[in-house]
Structures are given as C-alpha cells and as structure tokens.
C-alpha cells in the first residue's frame, strides 16, 4: 500500500485518516486525530509514556506502525473517563498524590487499566511488575503503587469509593 484513507477506531469512535506506511500510531493519534493525551517520551519503547490499549492490551504507540492498527479498537487516555468525571483509576491517582508532572500519567493509567482488567486483585509485587515498563521520573513510584492498590479496591467494589 502507499497513501490511503484508513479508519481508526479510537475510544469507540471511527476516524478516517490519510496514512502512509511509515507513519507511527502515536503521530496519527496526536497529529492527524488530535488526541494529544498520548505522550511521546522516548520513541523507543523504553518509557511507556505513549502506551495506548490496542484491543485492550497495552502497546507502545511509538513503535506501532499506524497501518497495523487500522480498523482495530484503540483506547487512549481521552477515552477512559465516561463523561465529565474521572475514571476510578484516574481518581485514585489524583487522590493518592500519584501525579506529579503528569507526563507519564496517561501511559501509567492505561497500563493500570490493562492490569486491573486482567487481574482485579493484584499484589504489590504484581503491580510493580506490570508497571515496570512505564517510567516515572517524579514520584519514585511509591504513590503510584498506592494509587493502583486503591483503584483496584474501588473497582472491585463496583466503582464505589
């Protein structure tokens, strides 16, 4: 293929975008679709700031060729909250003091979503292992791990706090 109009299903909504094979998913999301919540941190799959969910699984948008994500379900940070409020994971991050500069937060929150979808009651060790591909330079992870534990409890409780 060369240049084509492709459909991307982001946060449940279809977007038609002109793509070329060399375009990365992160650039299509940020520049073509305008969802800039996905962050470019390293372009190498080392920091996890660009994490999005592809069919529910966490992937690096910076190492994904956009063409391979055509017609597949994508979730970005903008799609997590239902309506104007915060998703329980986002609320837990806010309450626990797990957000400092906030640049790693979208990726961290989405990776947490993937973790809790597959393991609703993770141990501290399981949380740290699942998040180990997401670097944070500000927090030392202490309050991030606390936030994930708290979010897990809230979600197990049906979203009630």
């Amino acid at each position: 293929m060369a240049k084509e109009i492709a459909t991307f299903i982001v946060n449940g909504q279809g977007y038609e975008v002109i793509v070329e094979p060399h375009m990365l998913l992160i650039d299509v999301l940020r520049d073509s679709i305008g969802l800039v919540g996905t962050k470019y941190g390293c372009g190498a799959g080392d920091c996890g700031a660009c994490t999005v969910l592809l069919e529910g699984k966490p992937v690096f948008a910076c190492l994904t060729l956009a063409v391979t994500a055509r017609d597949r379900s994508l979730t970005t940070i903008e799609g997590l909250a239902d309506g104007a409020g915060l998703h329980p994971i986002q609320q837990a991050f806010v309450d626990a003091g797990a957000v400092q500069c906030g640049f790693c937060t979208p990726g961290m929150v989405l990776t947490t979503k993937a973790l809790l979808d597959e393991n609703p009651e993770p141990t501290r060790g399981e949380i740290k292992a699942f998040l180990a591909g997401n670097l944070c330079r500000c927090t030392g992870y202490v309050k991030i791990v606390e936030a994930v534990e708290s979010a897990a409890g809230i979600l197990r409780n049906g979203g009630a706090r």
Binding site: G45, G48, T51, P58, F60, A114, A129, A132
Partner: peptide, 12 residues
C-alpha cells in the same frame, strides 16, 4: 520471559 519486565514489550 518473566525477567523481561516491560508488559508492552511482551504484549507486542
């Protein structure tokens, strides 16, 4: 495989 800790790397 568990010693490769990045979840995204293992998912992709």
């Amino acid at each position: 495989i568990a010693s490769i800790v990045s979840m995204q790397t293992k998912v992709m």
